[in-house]
Design a protein around this nucleic acid. Structure first.
Lengths: 162, 162
DNA sequence: TACAATTAGATTGTACACAATTAAATCAGG
DNA sequence: CCTGATTTAATTGTGTACAATCTAATTGTA
């Protein structure tokens, strides 16, 4: 006998299957994007996470490690070694804040600033090549951001419980 | 003077900005999903990539490393050490194929098979908690899969050129 | 049959991610 | 002014990712 809301609420199995497919799709897509950018960024001597870091610094100017982390959703365990590599590559400076010795200010060197122009020269973006209509891409962006926020809320409230 | 297709074709800057936002959203979303699954999978002693590997094996039965890799889009550099960890955890077996000594067959042990039931017991899926309507999630899945395929095509044809 | 090309995995080296811990600096209540 | 709590980075340890290289097995073909 069908339940009142059958057809509206999925059964557990099909929900689980959709869950797995969607999570895998996000994961696989993310790695495919890394793979696309690699040869372009190789020429600039950057990795994709380093490129994201520069995007933020180009936009915001000087930031602390903490602020960088909250924009990129990364913690010091990831950022500290990456920033050290970027520092020894001459792209950024890392210096303790004189006002609060706990903080480390991250800022661009001339070389790091100069890469901005080179990065703009990437002739075609991924999306132009992808041949998908802009409207669809904006829609996709909105949904992904929505989903990420939802999961983030779940994760954060989960973390608080402990 | 506006070009004929202005408003239809985005300018380079806004395209670049959308590109960056979308790529970051996929990347951030992927990590948020990992973070969501971690406490659930910790109880089973699994990581998310190991869980994905088991999902495939539960579905397909015995597979070679190569076949596993083409389903998960991972190469032996990633799979070999991960499969060794799963083997020493008693979840899978790895044995050279007698017919073709180059191949390594990966199959489930009783323990690995048994985890399937425990994994089904994960009470609520991510998506049920996310509170987003099924239609929207299926739509998102389709678009992500489409995007991934497009990028994969680009990447593969790029790789052929060299 | 030789033997060059191909294929499947393993290995090596670099670079994230992230949980857990540590250490130093700052803050806040008494 | 102290001292315990909090905040900020750094460190440690484990586990992916992935390019590049290597080795052994197999295949295609002259």
């Amino acid at each position: 006998m069908p339940l009142p809301n059958e057809g509206v609420t999925m059964n557990k199995d099909s929900m689980l299957a959709l869950d797995n497919q969607l999570c895998f799709a996000v994961y696989a897509c993310s790695r495919e994007i890394f793979r696309f950018y690699r040869p372009l960024l190789d020429e600039l001597g950057l990795t994709y996470p380093q490129y994201l870091t520069l995007l933020v610094l180009w936009e915001e100017g000087e930031l602390t490690v903490k602020e960088l982390g909250s924009l990129l959703f990364l913690d010091s365990g990831t950022l500290t070694p990456m920033l050290k590599r970027m520092e020894s590559a001459g792209l950024i400076r890392r210096q303790r804040s004189p006002k609060d010795e706990r903080k480390v200010n991250v800022s661009l060197t001339k070389e790091g600033e100069a890469l901005k122009e080179q990065a703009r020269c990437i002739p075609e973006t991924l999306l132009q090549k992808s041949d998908l209509p802009e409207k669809e891409l904006r829609d996709l962006l909105g949904r992904l951001q929505g989903l990420q926020q939802q999961i983030r809320r779940l994760n954060d409230s989960n973390h608080d419980k402990e």
